[in-house]
């Protein structure tokens, strides 16, 4: 086994054991929140809304809600874990060791992806109590959820690198991520919006992720898949490059 692989395995194991150790804070709250969404928006209000894009409202919102939980959990896992490591100085354990920058990124992002996917799976299982889910295209489903969780885990990492206090790691999720997710077509189809707002919505990267994921379940999307995947992959490459540059230069990590 190569030294890099052992280092990655150690970091990833540590990250996964961190969030599973505190499962009451990391895995249960999103399950409770999403169950409330299913009950209130899906069952109570949804039954009065009728069909959307040819599906029941519950069927329509479930993929978006799963993706929303994946996004928030991938992001917050890396943001809080990496910032805590910085705050307690145990990130120094990695900085003094001969661990390449890409392993540090892969370890933390891998932890974020794992939590995002685990929460996504829990929410998916919960949704089965409310709706019969059919999978239209498993490949699209898996690739889109993996890329999206990677993208937001990278975002959380950059946030944590730049953060100077715990407040700094809650600003982005509260004031950027949540509004973008709500306006990203979780609860409605973009086709319901006037042309101008449809155009504005297309500047929101979360729109592409939710639509791609929804396509995996329902086979319908407001945006062509190839366009969505290009956007997501492009963002992943950009955020990875930024995180790599920051860690290599020691920004926010070394004096």
């Amino acid at each position: 086994m190569s030294a890099n692989f052992i280092a990655l395995k150690s970091l990833l194991t540590k990250e996964v054991s961190r969030f599973t150790r505190i499962w009451l804070q990391t895995l249960v709250p999103p399950a409770v929140t999403m169950s409330l969404y299913f009950v209130i928006f899906g069952n109570l209000i949804g039954s009065r809304i009728g069909q959307m894009s040819g599906f029941s409202y519950m069927e329509f919102i479930v993929p978006g809600l799963i993706m929303m939980s994946v996004i928030t959990n991938s992001y917050s896992n890396v943001a809080s874990s990496f910032f805590s490591s910085k705050f307690q100085h145990n990130v120094e354990e990695l900085l003094v060791a001969p661990v390449p920058t890409w392993i540090i990124i892969a370890g933390y992002v891998g932890g974020g992806i794992t939590r995002g996917l685990l929460v996504g799976l829990i929410v998916t299982l919960l949704s089965l109590f409310f709706v019969d889910l059919n999978i239209f295209n498993l490949g699209v489903l898996v690739v889109s959820v993996l890329l999206t969780s990677t993208l937001f885990a990278l975002g959380g990492l950059i946030n944590a690198i730049l953060a100077k206090s715990f407040d700094d790691i809650s600003i982005i999720p509260n004031f950027v991520l949540t509004p973008l997710t709500y306006l990203g077509g979780v609860f409605y189809s973009l086709t319901l919006l006037p042309d101008f707002w449809q155009g504005v919505s297309k500047a929101n990267p979360i729109v592409y992720m939710i639509n791609t994921f929804r396509y995996g379940f329902l086979g319908v999307s407001d945006i062509p898949l190839i366009y969505s995947f290009t956007m997501i992959i492009g963002f992943v490459v950009i955020l990875f490059s930024i995180a790599y540059w920051m860690i290599s230069r020691g920004i926010g990590l070394r004096s």
Partner: peptide, 29 residues
Amino acid sequence: LVPQEFNFNQFETVLQVVVNQAGYYGVPR
């Protein structure tokens, strides 16, 4: 390096602290 300030993860066990650090240097578990 043995730094001046305690900089290990306070929530990990003693064994986890040392075994993880060895892992970062490529030492098999």
